[in-house]
Nucleic acid binder design. Structure first.
Length: 158
DNA sequence: GCCAACGTTGGC
DNA sequence: GCCAACGTTGGC
């Protein structure tokens, strides 16, 4: 029996890598995550899991599109690359510290589900929803099936 | 193991 | 650009 599909939210800065970039490349190895909690969430991902792609640090922060987890977690190659910004001299190939998954483009939302809208419906998501907790900085976070459904209801169809 | 200093994130 | 919140580092 296959495990149930799970859901996640992954942040990206659109100036660096946006939903349009993901659409263009199709599938992207989600490298550069250097936070243990976020890493652990990626290690829990399974191919087929649903992903909200969230644009942060931009004019209108919010969910910009949908994607799918396209691989199991595997070692992030940039941790071994001296020339990479994500190089980690303390990581070894025998015991890699950082993991990533491949993320596959699903669709771009006609209009983003903005952080403002999400906050306005905060009561639908419960107190536990990390995205709208004060000072949240986690770049990869779990979304429950109920939250996934509720959030999609906020989408304005074209 | 505590905690101050520091760096980063991310909304505004 | 500001600043609050948070994670990490390193001295003790």
């Amino acid at each position: 029996m296959s495990p149930p599909r799970r859901y996640w939210l992954m942040k990206t800065e659109p100036d660096t890598f946006s939903i349009d970039d993901l659409q263009r490349v199709g599938t992207e190895p989600w490298n550069g995550v250097r936070n243990y909690q976020a890493r652990n969430h990626m290690r829990a991902m399974r191919p087929g899991d649903g992903v909200f792609l969230y644009h942060s640090s931009c004019a209108v922060p919010g969910i910009a599109g949908l994607a799918t987890v396209a691989s199991e977690a595997y070692p992030d190659p940039t941790q071994f690359d001296r020339k990479s910004d994500y190089f980690d001299e303390k990581s070894t190939r025998e015991d890699p510290r950082w993991s990533l998954v491949d993320v596959k483009f699903d669709r771009k939302l006609a209009q983003p589900i903005t952080l403002e809208e999400i906050k306005a419906h905060a009561e639908d998501f419960g107190e536990e929803f990390p995205l709208i907790r004060r000072g949240n900085r986690l770049s990869v976070l779990p979304v429950t099936a109920a939250q996934w459904k509720q959030l999609l209801k906020l989408e304005k169809r074209a």
